[in-house]
Design a protein around this nucleic acid. Structure first.
Lengths: 80, 80, 80, 80
DNA sequence: ACGTTTGCGCTTTAGC
DNA sequence: GCTAAAGCGCAAACGT
């Protein structure tokens, strides 16, 4: 079998793995939508919920960034 | 137990389900990145690969639209 | 003068306004780079500085998001 | 006054200069958005406009690369 | 100087 | 239909 074919097959496999993963990702995104719909059906305000999720994510990021900054300080000051 | 507490618990569960799903989604996105990295390590150009994935997605979408249109025609014409 | 020409002139003016603004934006981005360079020349660690700027921006966003969420609560509960 | 304080003050000034510049940058980005909105209100398709701006920027960039190459040749040949 | 990695801006999509 | 947020691609910045 020619080398070109091997390479083409390998590339094809990479592409297919990516496409499979992206399908999974989309499926999960749909699940998220479903949860919001279910919450809405139970009388919750989705706009508020989205704001809460966003805020909590932001707080997590801030916390992680603070830790990272501390690490950066240590490195910059040569502490260990 | 007060109704407010029940509602708060339920809301909390919805939020947690969403956050869990978003973590899964992020994990898959990371996997996609890994596949691109692996492909790059095997000598493939990731930018081109991304273009291919995008194109194939578009073609899939176009194909689905064509199928939908065909269905519409069938229904309109009473064919089955 | 034809209408088509008028429209073309108007579009051209919009495009040029945008391009002018984008040049200004780029100039400011260059200024930011210069400040980092100057700080580096004064012995400061730019990586740490960037982390600080990023953290402060994140904290500002978190604060704004908290305010927005509070507003959303008020609206959702019909408070005013 | 301690040296540490001086350094802290100087660092603080650098950070504030950067933050001020980034605010200006954001203000200009908002102006750009406004121009697109105004163009849209006048019946123009913003997506197409963005494509035009992108294309012209690319052409400018290509032109600059050509100029730079010419300069390189001049230097290499000792022409002036 | 180059390659890798991360941050930033843009585009597109989803919600209202 | 418009506004806003999420995802993606690119480019600059860091480390080797």
């Amino acid at each position: 079998m020619a080398e070109g074919t091997v390479a083409a097959d390998q590339l094809r496999l990479f592409i297919e793995r990516i496409e499979r993963l992206e399908e999974e990702k989309k499926a999960i995104a749909d699940d998220v939508r479903d949860v919001y719909s279910e919450a809405k059906a139970n009388g919750y305000d989705t706009k508020t919920m989205r704001a809460i999720v966003r805020l909590r994510k932001l707080e997590t990021h801030t916390r992680q960034e603070m830790d990272a900054l501390l690490e950066t300080y240590r490195s910059a000051l040569g502490l260990r």
